Amino acid sequence: MSEAAATRRRATTRERLLDAGRDLLAREGIHGASVEHICEHAGYTRGAFYSNFSSKDELVLALFEREFADLMRRLEVAVDPSTYAGMGPGDALSAIMDRFLQLRPPDLDFYLLHAEFQLRGMRGDIGGAEFNELWQTVTEQVGGIVQRVLDELNLRLSVPMSQVITILMGTYDTELHSALVNDRPMDEELLRVTLPGLLLAATEPAS
């Protein structure tokens, strides 16, 4: 096998292990999902696991890095200025939210994973400090994206960005939580209308 083929095979194995970890961690929790169960779910041996990750904790760290990288990629696509050129602020923000929901449909597994990661951060478990640091980076990146959109729409915030991000992300998470505990689909229409409305309420014309 060539070096390039071996590299591709290793990358495929790693992704399948991460996919299996995602499924199991969302359903069984970080403590409940064993390395053996993850290997079984992915269809690999323990040897394959340990050739990619030194421990389950390393897989957990790699998983939430992958999840947040995917979240940010999809958000960047959703805010492409060419897709809302010529629209008024309200319509533009609604179009961005609609596109984001299409690119990343509501995912209760992600909510459960995020809850697991948050608990690690609050408890100071292995990986908790790394999660807290990454989450801070994510919120800063989201703030940067929101600022770029507002600049495109010639709007400026009338309240601090940190408060806006807390409100927007908190509203999204609250709806996810409600959908999860009530065993129902997320109210996407609520998000399409409410999140843009909340952001507009915190802005004013820049000039």
Rank of each mutant, 00 (worst) to 15 (best):
M1H: 09
M1V: 10
A5T: 12
A6H: 07
R8T: 08
R9D: 10
R16P: 07
L17F: 02
D19I: 02
A20T: 05
A20H: 04
D23F: 09
R27G: 07
E28I: 04
I30N: 01
I30E: 07
A33H: 00
V35Q: 06
E36Y: 09
E36Q: 12
E36W: 02
E36R: 13
C39D: 05
C39L: 02
E40S: 14
H41L: 04
A42E: 06
A42K: 07
G43S: 11
G43L: 08
R46W: 04
A48W: 05
Y50P: 02
S51W: 12
N52D: 09
N52L: 00
F53A: 01
S54T: 15
S54Y: 04
S55P: 03
S55E: 04
K56S: 05
D57A: 11
D57K: 05
D57S: 11
E58S: 08
L59G: 01
L59H: 01
A62P: 00
A62W: 00
E67Y: 02
F68A: 08
D70N: 11
R74H: 13
E76S: 13
A78K: 01
V79C: 06
P81Y: 07
T83G: 12
A85W: 05
G86K: 02
G90H: 01
D91R: 12
A92V: 02
S94G: 13
S94H: 12
A95P: 00
M97H: 04
M97F: 14
D98L: 11
L103I: 06
R104E: 12
P105G: 01
P105Y: 03
P105V: 01
L108Q: 13
F110I: 03
Y111C: 00
L112G: 00
L112V: 00
H114G: 05
H114P: 00
E116D: 09
F117D: 01
G121N: 04
M122E: 14
R123V: 05
D125L: 10
D125C: 04
D125T: 12
G127Q: 06
G128M: 01
G128T: 00
F131Y: 15
E133D: 11
E133R: 15
E133T: 12
L134K: 15
Q136A: 13
T137F: 10
V138H: 00
T139Q: 06
E140G: 09
E140W: 03
V142G: 02
G144T: 07
V146N: 06
V146P: 02
Q147H: 10
Q147F: 00
Q147V: 10
L153S: 04
L157Q: 06
S158F: 03
S158Y: 02
V159I: 12
P160D: 06
S162N: 09
Q163P: 01
T166K: 14
Y172E: 08
D173H: 14
H177W: 14
H177Q: 13
S178C: 03
L180D: 07
V181D: 05
N182Y: 11
D183R: 15
P185C: 09
D187R: 11
E189Y: 06
L190Y: 14
R192V: 03
T194S: 15
L195Q: 06
L198A: 08
L198N: 13
L199D: 07
L199A: 10
E204M: 11
P205Q: 04
P205D: 07
P205N: 03
A206V: 06
